[in-house]
Design a protein around this nucleic acid. Structure first.
Length: 459
RNA sequence: GGCGGGUUGGCGGAGAGGUUACGCAGCGGAUUGCAAAUCCGUGAAGACCGGUUCGAUUCCGGUACCCGCCUCCA
């Protein structure tokens, strides 16, 4: 039995799918205007583990996982306009398309590097504009939304449970007074479903004139098209809980009162870097690609993420990455050339089933002595898989001559009691990233983490 | 101001109302020419103040501190 902490009820609940032949999961995906930063990767890795667990429990063919690409956004427009101003000859529309295509390619490459499985569907907002317009028309017809001055706004007061997910009341929020006041709003909390586009911005024809959708409507429209009016799990970062998810619920439940939208809401906490919020102003902002380029393997990033429960803030530190790499190297050596066991360790399943206790699952892996079982169990966490381990394999190098030389020097030193020549060679080997093992059985040289063949020249 | 999360041994980080978490580091030992690697062993905790209880780090209340969201940033 899988148990998940449901943000909607604020409790850990037994998970019971609506249809165990088709378990349905939706994760809010990225706005594709730039490289994914490290924080973007956290929900992807967390939900990837959930996806793997669900596939394990219900069968690989009985889980539908949807993660959208938001490719309508002012930041994308800004990036395209910047290119235009820099002298690009393409139309703005073409530049936007280029930018989103490019970013999606980066995103796939980066998330692949983290060992995340591709979702079943990756819908793009621009492919669902028609569905969004239909949904907005329906909301207007049902009295939950109104058109004014080219905008369409959702009437927050018409959905009585508005604020239930995030524990807020409309009145409290207005008292907070951090809302955009606009003359065309009936109520300050009303939010945009559709807005007009100037000629130099992307737009689509609609009953309210040429314009583009507000942000929230895309997830409501796409989840409805791909998963239906009711589905099992909706996930995303806790920062999306309000207003994004609150607005999704309001739109979807008002448009499809026959459905319940998402049964379970999973929210992951934020990511920090060395104890502080990651931000450009603090200079600790970096992308997944930055880390990969620094030589930190995706599997190591993944391991660091999974060491912290998704519901707690997770602190990225260089020290954690160092430790994770050491652990993975040890495990990789253990499972090298080992065939995965046919089944997964029950402790690992039990830990993951308990609200995705990935840290507990990793602790269980530490206790495992059977490499075949370790490999099979780690796979449920997306670790120690064959495709992801190139980084840990020893660099190709023939060190047999040097090993023989060291053995000779050592044998001589045993006689003369002068170990200086042996130590000199050993020191040089260590400096080149070679691990030196000397025992009664003989000398063994292994290329290690920082192996540099160039430093072996002349030895 | 409103809403929410957190505070565990040197560091990271879990579970469980009463029994060793675990990992890294440290320390002791085996091993080694010395190391490395490996193996064995080992000390160390639960922010603060109350309450419930035979018993709480674990449940409840309060205090302090930290953090997030409320600004179409996951």
């Amino acid at each position: 039995m899988i148990r998940l902490h449901n943000s909607k009820t604020r409790r850990k609940e037994d998970f019971a799918p609506i249809d165990d032949q088709n378990v349905r999961l939706y994760l809010c995906g990225p706005t594709v205007y730039d490289r994914a930063h490290l924080g973007n990767a956290r929900p992807v890795v967390v939900i990837d583990v959930l996806y793997r667990l669900l596939r394990h429990v219900y069968g690989a063919d009985h889980v539908t996982y949807v993660r959208n690409f938001t490719d309508v956004d002012d930041k994308i427009n800004a990036a395209a306009q910047a290119r235009k101003e820099a002298g690009a000859i393409e139309t703005l529309e073409e530049l936007i398309r280029q930018r989103t295509e490019e970013t999606i390619g980066w995103y796939h490459a980066d998330m692949d590097a983290l060992g995340a499985l591709r979702p079943t569907h990756e819908p793009r907002a621009t492919d669902f504009i028609g569905a969004m317009i239909s949904m907005i028309e329906d909301l207007i017809a049902k009295g939950h939304a109104y058109a004014k001055e080219g905008h369409v706004l959702f009437r927050v007061r018409s959905y009585k449970d508005y604020g239930a997910l995030s524990g807020r009341s409309v009145d409290d929020m207005i008292a907070g007074a951090r809302v955009e006041v606009a003359p065309f709003k009936e109520d300050p909390m009303d939010f945009v479903l559709w807005k007009p586009s100037a000629d130099d911005l992307p737009g689509w024809e609609s009953p309210w004139g040429r314009g583009r959708p507000g942000w929230h409507i895309e997830c409501s429209a796409m989840s409805y098209e791909l998963l239906g009016a009711s589905f099992d799990i909706h996930a995303g970062g806790i920062d999306l809980q309000f207003p994004h998810h609150e607005n999704e619920i309001a739109q979807s439940c008002c448009a499809h009162p026959e459905g319940g939208f998402a049964n379970v809401w999973l929210h992951n906490e934020m990511l920090q870097v060395e104890g502080k919020k990651m931000s450009k102003s603090l200079g600790n902002f970096f992308t997944v690609r930055d880390l990969l380029d620094q030589g930190i393997p995706g599997e190591v990033i993944r391991f660091v993420f999974l060491q912290t429960h998704y519901g707690k803030p997770m602190d990225w530190t260089a020290e954690k990455a160092r430790q994770a790499e050491a652990t993975l190297r040890k495990w990789r050596a253990l499972v090298a050339d080992v065939e995965a066991a046919p089944s997964v360790a029950p402790e690992v399943i039990a830990a993951l089933s308990d609200d995705l206790n990935t840290a507990g699952a990793i602790a269980a892996l530490h206790q495992m002595t059977d490499p075949a079982l370790l490999k099979a169990s780690a796979a449920l966490l997306g670790l120690l898989e064959d495709g992801l381990g190139d980084w840990a394999s020893a660099p190709e190098a023939d060190l047999s001559d040097l090993a023989a030389k060291l053995a000779d020097l050592r044998a001589t030193a045993m006689e003369t009691k002068d170990f200086a020549p042996v130590d000199a060679l050993k020191t040089a080997l260590l400096a080149a990233g070679v691990e030196v093992r000397m025992s009664k059985a003989g000398v063994e040289l292994l290329p290690g983490a920082g192996f540099d063949a160039a430093k072996l020249e002349g030895l």
